[in-house]
Amino acid sequence: MVAVESIEAEAGSGIVGDRHHGSRHRHVSVQSRDELAAATAARGAPVPEELTRRNLTLDHGAVPTIPGARLVVGDVVLEVVRRAAPCRVMDTEIGPGAARAMHERGGAICRVLSSGTIAVGDAVELPG
């Protein structure tokens, strides 16, 4: 994973250049810095966002995880497919206990409903 200033999201396909581009549902994985802070507290050690293998990190607020929920990032509409389960690789990449700390805090896997650019600093609209 490499941090970038912006990405192109393509409706029905995902993030252009991502290994999941063109997959049926796993277009974008989304996490929250608030949830990462909670995971860090639960683990008692840092859970760095760049090592969680997620595509997008929101500055604040909880990521919706109920299938069908929609969020808007910049001009791109995303729809939640499922809760993102923590990857076992997290314990290797981050350290022991990282995957458990991310349980129920891993964000969501979303499909892209509308094409556009997502850039650092874009406005985010969450349901509710």
Rank of each mutant, 00 (worst) to 15 (best):
D34C: 07
E35Y: 15
E35G: 08
E35L: 11
E35D: 04
L36R: 04
L36I: 06
L36C: 08
A38I: 13
A39K: 07
T40S: 02
T40L: 11
A42Q: 06
A42R: 13
R43L: 07
R43D: 06
R43H: 14
G44P: 15
G44D: 02
G44I: 14
G44L: 07
G44K: 00
G44A: 03
G44Q: 03
A45R: 01
A45L: 04
V47S: 11
P48I: 10
P48S: 15
P48E: 11
E49C: 14
E50V: 04
L51H: 02
L51K: 12
T52C: 15
R54V: 03
N55V: 04
N55F: 02
N55W: 05
N55D: 08
N55T: 12
T57C: 13
T57R: 05
T57N: 11
L58P: 14
H60V: 11
H60R: 02
G61Y: 15
A62N: 09
A62L: 05
V63Y: 00
V63C: 12
V63N: 08
P64N: 07
P64F: 00
T65G: 00
I66T: 13
I66Y: 15
P67A: 00
G68P: 04
R70H: 09
L71K: 11
L71H: 07
V72H: 08
V72C: 09
V73M: 09
V73R: 07
G74T: 10
G74H: 09
D75S: 08
D75E: 15
V76A: 00
V77W: 06
V77T: 10
L78M: 09
L78K: 07
L78C: 02
E79Y: 08
E79I: 09
V80Y: 03
V80M: 09
V81A: 09
V81L: 01
R82T: 04
R83P: 03
A84C: 13
A84S: 05
A84L: 03
A85Q: 00
A85S: 13
A85T: 01
A85N: 06
A85I: 02
P86G: 04
P86Y: 00
C87M: 11
C87E: 03
